[in-house]
């Protein structure tokens, strides 16, 4: 099993800062999972998980947590913290990271 480095160097830095700038509401997430419970797509799609992974600096995994997302916005409706989940998904899926690469797979 791969040991993960939680030195936080990449956690809230680098590409995550780019995403934060695009969708500032993402910092309000309390990872309650309401979005995942309400998700229309599948049991594997989770904005909560994506945001948690993002905070650990694990961008590729965060993207994977949204695979299959229909972009329907139901998760935004249930979020208690006013996170613009669609904005987070869009930023994560379509935005360039710090090295200029498009995050989209």
């Amino acid at each position: 099993m791969q040991v993960r480095d939680l030195s936080m160097a990449g956690a809230w830095g680098d590409s995550v800062d780019v995403l934060k700038a695009i969708e500032p509401s993402l910092v309000n997430c309390i990872t309650c999972g309401g979005c995942a419970a309400a998700c229309a797509a599948s049991a594997n799609v989770s904005v909560a998980k994506a945001i948690l992974l993002l905070r650990r600096g694990l961008l590729a995994d965060a993207r994977a947590a949204l695979e299959g997302c229909l972009f329907c916005g139901k998760c935004r409706f249930v979020c208690p913290m006013g996170v613009n989940t669609r904005g987070v998904i869009a930023a994560l899926t379509f935005s360039p990271d710090s090295s200029g690469n498009i995050l989209h797979q």
Binding site: G33, A43, S46, K49
Partner: peptide
């Protein structure tokens, strides 16, 4: 409907 956020599984 809920999400078990620690296990990452829907309930």
């Amino acid at each position: 409907k809920a999400e078990d956020t620690l296990l990452g599984r829907p309930i």
